[in-house]
Design a binder for these strands. Sequence first.
DNA 1: TTTAATTTTCAAAAAATATTGAAAATTAAA
DNA 2: TTTAATTTTCAATATTTTTTGAAAATTAAA
Lengths: 168, 168
Amino acid sequence: MKLIEAKQQFISSWGAFGTHWGINRTMAQIHALLLICSDPITQDDIMEELNISRGNTNMNIRELINWGLVDRVILPGERKDFFLAEKDIWKVVKMIVKERKKRELEPMLQLLDRLEEVEGDKRDKNIKSFIDTISSIKKLGKQADKTLDTMIRAEESWFISSLMKMFK
Amino acid sequence: MKLIEAKQQFISSWGAFGTHWGINRTMAQIHALLLICSDPITQDDIMEELNISRGNTNMNIRELINWGLVDRVILPGERKDFFLAEKDIWKVVKMIVKERKKRELEPMLQLLDRLEEVEGDKRDKNIKSFIDTISSIKKLGKQADKTLDTMIRAEESWFISSLMKMFK
DNA sequence: TTTAATTTTCAAAAAATATTGAAAATTAAA
DNA sequence: TTTAATTTTCAATATTTTTTGAAAATTAAA
């Protein structure tokens, strides 16, 4: 496989992969493109490479910046803005985990806390069964939350060697 | 909060949560409803509870069965099919992890293997930079794959106590 | 067998989501 | 300043995804 073809494959697959995880295809593709560009590139470069409109490019770059995955770079003597992706994949994963934890897991845990407080006699079969389900989800969710917190703080080397030991 | 309201909240939030993870809202809502029903219920019960059509209900139940999250139950003396969700949340999580690993992570790792074999001089800056990015993603992906394999095989109690030790 | 209840399928419609492109806003060079 | 390049916004449009509902298929009781 030629380099140019390999790059296209990577971009297209990363985009498809993203859609399975609730990330829009274009955002994932722009991210993929930036991941394999060693030097910063402009909005126009991205538009041309992916064949997408200016507005679309702009909005998705902004979103990638919000996620902390891409930085805007000002090059001296250049009029246009340039963009550069974080290349350290461990940092990228930690960033995504951190954001999704904050946006999705934490609100869910807060909701479960409130749902556990449902009114009524705890000996009532219906109430008991509901609380049991909610509690078990909450328990696992809290554990995941703690584990992810530790992961976010960890160094890659420490994390991997630690997992290695854990799983023999 | 009353039980009926708490149930509605849970179903609606579980649905919204699903959409952030590439799972369709209705499928997640049916799953939520079944999770908090201690006894098996019929397609008609689900249609009525969630206000959705027969076709939609049927297709999403089938999908939940494919994922191994719901079972069809034949009750003696009853004409209609009944449905029951797996209630052990640890089993549910393992099932979802197993499926998504197979459907998404493994094909991605296979692609990365192929992309790493890109033609050309490995000393060429462009080639080297591409291979470096692909390799680092692959490395982390392979580690995740192994870790998830172990998790899928693990008992909840073992897994949690193991994580506890790991993270002090 | 019929017959009626129930489930499944899938083309068409609706809803949700993503994309475009041109106008407005911003920025910095002249 | 003025001007031109660049970025941003967002209503309109296009695309994708989901949902519907009625017909077809299946199932089991009569």
